[in-house]
Measured scan of single mutants.
Amino acid sequence: MTVRVDGVDYEFSSLEEAVRFALKMAKSKGAEVQLHNGTFHVE
């Protein structure tokens, strides 16, 4: 599972870890999280 934040990809071994990271980053940026074909994008 890959989480992309500001064009940088972060790899996670589990969906749970990836979701937690994506939500944490989105909250800190006041951004939204989108899921596309198994890849999260924080914008």
Rank of each mutant, 00 (worst) to 15 (best):
M1L: 09
M1Q: 05
T2D: 01
T2C: 15
V3N: 00
V3R: 00
V3K: 00
R4A: 03
R4T: 11
R4W: 10
R4D: 03
V5R: 01
D6M: 07
D6W: 05
D6R: 03
G7F: 03
G7L: 02
G7N: 05
V8L: 07
V8A: 04
D9K: 07
D9S: 08
D9C: 15
D9A: 08
Y10M: 02
Y10W: 06
Y10P: 00
Y10F: 07
E11K: 13
E11A: 12
E11D: 07
E11W: 14
E11C: 15
F12D: 00
F12K: 00
F12E: 00
F12P: 00
S13T: 11
S13A: 12
S13D: 11
S14G: 03
S14Q: 02
S14V: 03
S14H: 03
S14F: 02
S14K: 03
S14M: 02
S14T: 12
L15C: 15
L15G: 02
L15N: 04
E16S: 07
E16F: 09
E17F: 02
E17D: 10
E17L: 06
E17P: 00
A18N: 00
A18D: 00
V19W: 15
V19R: 10
V19L: 14
V19Y: 15
V19K: 09
R20H: 07
R20S: 09
F21H: 02
F21E: 03
F21A: 02
A22V: 06
A22I: 08
A22C: 14
L23N: 13
L23G: 07
L23V: 12
L23E: 14
L23F: 08
L23W: 08
L23C: 15
K24S: 10
K24T: 11
K24R: 09
K24N: 10
M25P: 00
M25L: 06
M25A: 06
A26T: 04
A26P: 01
K27N: 10
K27Y: 11
S28P: 02
S28N: 11
K29M: 14
G30Q: 06
G30N: 09
G30M: 07
A31V: 13
A31N: 05
A31D: 04
A31M: 14
A31R: 09
E32V: 14
E32A: 10
E32L: 13
E32M: 13
V33A: 05
Q34P: 04
Q34R: 14
L35P: 03
L35W: 13
L35T: 05
L35C: 15
L35H: 05
L35R: 05
L35E: 04
L35D: 04
H36N: 09
H36K: 10
H36D: 05
N37G: 09
N37P: 03
G38S: 04
T39D: 12
T39M: 14
F40I: 15
F40G: 12
H41L: 14
H41K: 05
H41Y: 15
V42W: 08
V42D: 11
E43T: 13
E43I: 15
E43G: 14
E43W: 11
